[in-house]
C-alpha cells in the first residue's frame, strides 16, 4: 500500500530525513519510535503533504501513485488521514459542520452522493460512541477550548468518521491519562482491519500495550535503524534508544 524509498527531506536547509525506507502493506500496524528530534513528526507531515518541507531525494508510492505529487486534500480524499499531535483551533467553525464538509468532500471525490445534515448526524452519533464523547461536542468550535485529551479524542472521532485507508497517528498518546489512552486505543482498534494500515508515531511503549503493532521501527538520525516485532518496543523501553543507536553506530 505504501512504499517509501530512500526518502531525504530538509527544512530550512537542515536535513531531517536521510534515506528513509519503509514498506507498509494493507492490514498492518507499524509503530515508529525514536528519540526526540529524530524526524518522526516530519515523516508524518510528509505523508500528509504539509507545505514547507523540501524533498531532496527519494519517492513515496501510495497505492501505485506518486504521493509526493499530490495535494494534501487529494491525499486525504484518497484515504490518508493524519491524527495531529497538536490539533489547531479554528474559531467560529462548528466542529460537526467542518466534519460534514470534510466527509462530503471525500465522498464527492469517490463519486458518491453527499450526505445531508440529518444522515450525517446519525453517522456522527454512532461514531461518537467509539471515543466516548457527548453531543455537546458537536456544537463547539473546532478544537476551541478543548482540553488536551478532548483534542486527541476529537482526532480519533474524525478518523472514525472519515474511515481512512492509511491512518497516521502522530503521538496521539502524548498527554493522555490512562483512561483516555484506553479510549483512544479502542477507537483505533475498532478501525483495524485487513484492508487498512496504521502508522503509529510514538515515544512510548505504553500505547503499544493497547494497540498491538505488527512491526516496530526505530527512527534515528533521519532513517530507520532497526526494525522488529512488538518485542522490539519492549526492549527499547528497558534499554533506551541509546542501545539501538550504539548498535547502529557500531555497525557503521
Amino acid at each position: 500500500m505504501l512504499e517509501i524509498k530512500n526518502l531525504s527531506v530538509s527544512v530550512d536547509n537542515k536535513q531531517i530525513l536521510n534515506g528513509l525506507n519503509l514498506s507498509v502493506k494493507a492490514g498492518e500496524v507499524h509503530a515508529i519510535m525514536g528519540p526526540n528530534g529524530s524526524g518522526k513528526s516530519t515523516l508524518a507531515h510528509i505523508l500528509a503533504g504539509k507545505p514547507g518541507y523540501e524533498i531532496i531525494g527519494g519517492e513515496i508510492i501510495y497505492q501505485g501513485k506518486n504521493l509526493l505529487a499530490m495535494e494534501p486534500e487529494l491525499r486525504a480524499c484518497e484515504g490518508i488521514f493524519l491524527a495531529f499531535q497538536y490539533p489547531v483551533e479554528i474559531s467560529g467553525v462548528n466542529n460537526l459542520y467542518f466534519l460534514k464538509e470534510a466527509y462530503n468532500a471525500i465522498r464527492r471525490h469517490r463519486a458518491e452522493k453527499a450526505l445531508d445534515a440529518m444522515d450525517f448526524l446519525k453517522l456522527a452519533k454512532e461514531k461518537m460512541k467509539l471515543v466516548e464523547l457527548n453531543e455537546s461536542f458537536f456544537n463547539r468550535n473546532v478544537n476551541e477550548g478543548f482540553s488536551g485529551g478532548e483534542k486527541k479524542r476529537n482526532e480519533i472521532f474524525q478518523m472514525a468518521i472519515l474511515d481512512p485507508t492509511l491512518a497516521i497517528l502522530d503521538e496521539t498518546d502524548s498527554g493522555l491519562d490512562i483512561d483516555a489512552l484506553k479510549t483512544v486505543a479502542s477507537g483505533v482498534n475498532h478501525l483495524r482491519n485487513e484492508k487498512k494500515a496504521i502508522i503509529l508515531v510514538t515515544h512510548y511503549q505504553r500505547l503499544l500495550d493497547y494497540i498491538k503493532p505488527d512491526f516496530v521501527h526505530v527512527l534515528a538520525q533521519g532513517k530507520i535503524i532497526k526494525s522488529g516485532d512488538a518485542t522490539l518496543a519492549l526492549r527499547l523501553e528497558e534499554e533506551g534508544y541509546s542501545w539501538a543507536l550504539e548498535k547502529e553506530n557500531a555497525r557503521a
Binding site: G49, K50, E73, F84, E101, I106, L162
Partner: peptide, 11 residues
C-alpha cells in the same frame, strides 16, 4: 489551520 482542513479533504 489551512493545512488542518486540507488534510481532512477540504480544498
Amino acid at each position: 489551520q489551512l493545512f488542518y482542513l486540507r488534510q481532512r479533504g477540504i480544498s
